[in-house]
Design a protein around this nucleic acid. Sequence first.
DNA 1: GTCTTTTTATTCGAATGCGAAAAAACCCAA
DNA 2: TTGGGTTTTTTCGCATTCGAATAAAAAGAC
Lengths: 377, 377
Amino acid sequence: MRKNPIVQRETLGAAVLQVRSGRATSRTTLAKALGISPSTTGLYVDHLIAENYLSESGLNQGPMGRPRRILSTQAEAGWFAGVEFNAQRVQAVGVDFSGSLRATVELLLPADVVTEQVIKSILTCVAKLATTMQGPLLSVGLGVAGLVDAQAGVGLYYAFIPDWNQVPVAEKIGSKLNVPVILQNNLRAIALAERWFGIGHGLNDYVILGPRSGFGVAMVQDGRVVEGAHHAAGEVGRWPWPLMGGAIDGQELHHALSAPATWRRLAGVDGRAKLPEDLRAGLAAVSDSAGPEWDAVCGDYARVIGLLHMIVDTGVFILHGPLTMLGERFCHSITDAACALMPALRNGGLKVVPSTLGDNAGALGAASLAMEAWAPA
Amino acid sequence: MRKNPIVQRETLGAAVLQVRSGRATSRTTLAKALGISPSTTGLYVDHLIAENYLSESGLNQGPMGRPRRILSTQAEAGWFAGVEFNAQRVQAVGVDFSGSLRATVELLLPADVVTEQVIKSILTCVAKLATTMQGPLLSVGLGVAGLVDAQAGVGLYYAFIPDWNQVPVAEKIGSKLNVPVILQNNLRAIALAERWFGIGHGLNDYVILGPRSGFGVAMVQDGRVVEGAHHAAGEVGRWPWPLMGGAIDGQELHHALSAPATWRRLAGVDGRAKLPEDLRAGLAAVSDSAGPEWDAVCGDYARVIGLLHMIVDTGVFILHGPLTMLGERFCHSITDAACALMPALRNGGLKVVPSTLGDNAGALGAASLAMEAWAPA
DNA sequence: GTCTTTTTATTCGAATGCGAAAAAACCCAA
DNA sequence: TTGGGTTTTTTCGCATTCGAATAAAAAGAC
């Protein structure tokens, strides 16, 4: 047995993250990943095993030498809640300590929803999850629509809920549940979801494309989610459209490239046409991928993505939202169109891919927030 | 006298930076800035004073309590060289340990310059500076034209020097001078120059606008210079132009908004017209700030800046290069035009300002690189 | 089998950084 | 002038972290 008690909460949390993500599988690799000495790492691991957060699950024999003692997270050590909402619904997921999705809940919101109802629905979702999850709830991540001050835990503004203004969400939820509550804008949460559950695994630079009721992007640069000086990074939906239009008629990008607008353009109906019940299904039914409408839409996406790419130099664009139903062919058409429009992109590894995550990416991202923020008491 | 010898080079360097920047003026404020305990900070300061890097320069009495013992950097402790080049010239500055500009050198390059000549000219500049600077040379910062891998210390590519390809500049220079050599793209170096010598002081988010022979931007987000996954962040010069043009005629943004192109447009001459000897003077002579050309140019700048602003959400755009000669009126016109074109910007604190730094901003930025990287032996 | 090589993990003394308390330096008021 | 209040700086013991050496665990050679 070792000697010292341990205190560095932060480092313990970081260690668990490394193990959970699979970046560190043994004491030695963990030491390297955390940048601390092997001896200290041993102490930390001992402590985490004693507290039942980690366990050893067999040996891993390399080409030679003493085999590594494989470290794993203990799934039963507790769970994380990830909740995301917009004006229509609340989605929530429960994720065990190993990072596996274990439960899903969805709650529809009435048309004239107000702040207090949203808060209550969030709490309801977490309570429902709690009935199926085992172990204690460790922390809650929240993907919040609209502008968010993540640091302060405050929802600043959301156009589709009238009284959603300077709402101290983290405090409101946290005081009821007595666990840490972490906020982030829901699109930026999705960026984290890709890191933990999707294509973003191991990537340090990528962009989430979020054409939904509006159009926004979330950027990850050098492993960090970009928030912006006024929490508004990636709000390209309000770009003027067309980009070079001389006359100012108030048209903005999301009028042309939001998910409903895209459907209308592809379906060849005008602005007054009723949207399908299920937009995803409607988009999946778009079969024509060669007509002039298709080319026009892909060209528009290509322009936006190309411009973005040249600014932030990321490379991978991950398409989210209903438009993922258009599949690979859509992403390919966009890539092709971008290279055709912008010579500068031809050698530059531009890649557009549809997300492999489903409709609950936001909730998964919120759960990722919770996981990343957690540290043992 | 205290007890312990000190070893954490990194922390010593960070401490000096805090003092030099004026963010920390006493042991206590330094402790807070560095996030280490006051007791340890005391040890570090003792060490730095003993080694003659810092000194105490009097007392600062607050409203009550024991007065702070003011810490200052020792100007004579050594000096930093900052060198910047492009295809035309090499500029270099010598900065003393307190961060004051002390010497300037410029060297013109021949029209058909090749890599080895550039390296030699850089060394010549440093040697010239050394004759006027006192104390030992501590480190060299290099603002490199074109694509740069800062981490590796390699100049990747620069269009205007034919054999500038995968040049291990840091190694080449460092091995001659036997001091650390730090590289960065020259526009990104300017971003650092603004932090240490200009408007960027205290700002965490801003963008450098660099219309010169081309057009690029450098971004600072959350205090960090953005480099991009392929070292190409901010290369907006290759945006297609006009942005929404249907036909692909290979026109790109820098054809319209580079410094020479801007002069031509404002002067009302066509592409074959000869440029003035001194572009800065030529631009300063542009008196008409109301005609249709002026509006067109400002509108174009406004578009670019507006789009950028909505992506990265920074707020302050600092104009660099020859166009600063157009002064405040140019920046105001751009801001006005941006707000007119993009309703979303009207409440959002968009600010465009001309840099107060002169022609040697790049060299100053390179010196900032050197200062930021230095740590005692 | 035993010994060498290689890699991982642990032991143990040394030292670095921290926290709490003390000291120092100043103001102000009585 | 003296004592209380306030803030900065230093002292000092303790605990955490590190580095180097050691132990452990396997593969392969002989």
